[in-house]
Amino acid sequence: MAEKKLELKNKRFTGPFTLIISVVVFYLVVKIMCRSLYSQMVVNMALVFCLVAYSVSVMLGMCGELSFAGVAFMGIGAFTIANLTTGRFGFKISPLGAFLVVIPVATFIAFIIGLILLRLKGTFFSFSTIALVQVAYTFFNNYRPLFGGVDGISGIPSVRILGKQLTNHYLWFPYLLVFVVFVGLVVEHIRNTQLGRSMASCRDNETAARVLGVNVYMTKVIAFTISGVLSAMGGALYSMLIRYASADMFTYDTSAKYLIMAMFGGVQSTIGAFIGALIVQILPQVLKVFQRYFQLIWGVSIILLMVFMPEGLTGIFRMALKRRKSRKKGRISVIQEKGEE
């Protein structure tokens, strides 16, 4: 009995079979549901923002630090793509090539900024990320040579994958889906390895983390870097999708949206970020009738969400699972007692 309990593999991670099935099902459902190019675009956007929601999940869910910096890194990703593909530096590279450049650029910038900002803790740190977003926005909006100023940068060429030009949203969808699922698996893997546990220890009990040999500061910097890269990839794909990048895509106000995506699905889980991004992105389209009151409903629902389900949908799911389990356990113990009689 005891040996059976000593399983190392984490059960939260569903098997590859279930995963493939659910991805295929999701693909088919979207294919059937999305009759118009517009609705396909909404789903594609949701997938892109999902990357940003992952980044929130890494920083807030794993590391316990509330960061608003996501939009700043999205901007860095998007403008890197825009600059490299439109030949503003005097040379042009393909969007996919530029996407590969985004990753080291974002890693470097996020690491340096993380080193600076993470000297602060908790609320202090959250403040400083707001400052970062504000500084980044001002630069995006004013510095023409790099960011095109108020007009932004347009004319990003369409992406070519496997000899095929991705000219519309239908064509984009399968590639985006695969990529987002792949990144999700990487994030989930981080959660279940040493790095994820170190982050969790920083989140839950710093003193315990220290006596267990976790360098709290460095772990947080690494988490910040990872989340920065995730956001930058999201921003890069965003600009590749709409073939345009401008400062007002990356304001402080929009950062709340990504936070809510992750919180809605459940900040403790990767799949939660995925579900949250989809729901938050698609819901406004469904509620179009209430356009005038939509923002109000949105604000109220954020408060209600925090009050009634701070751990999001997956949190509720987990609670229900636990309750069912304990009920089962209760039944078994009753049976055993009867047997003893």
Partner: peptide, 19 residues
């Protein structure tokens, strides 16, 4: 259970007040 939940709720309140 999340200290951040309160912070995010105030962000929601901010949207509500503006609207």
């Amino acid at each position: 259970s999340y200290s951040q939940a309160t912070i995010i709720a105030t962000m929601g309140a901010s949207i509500v007040l503006q609207e």
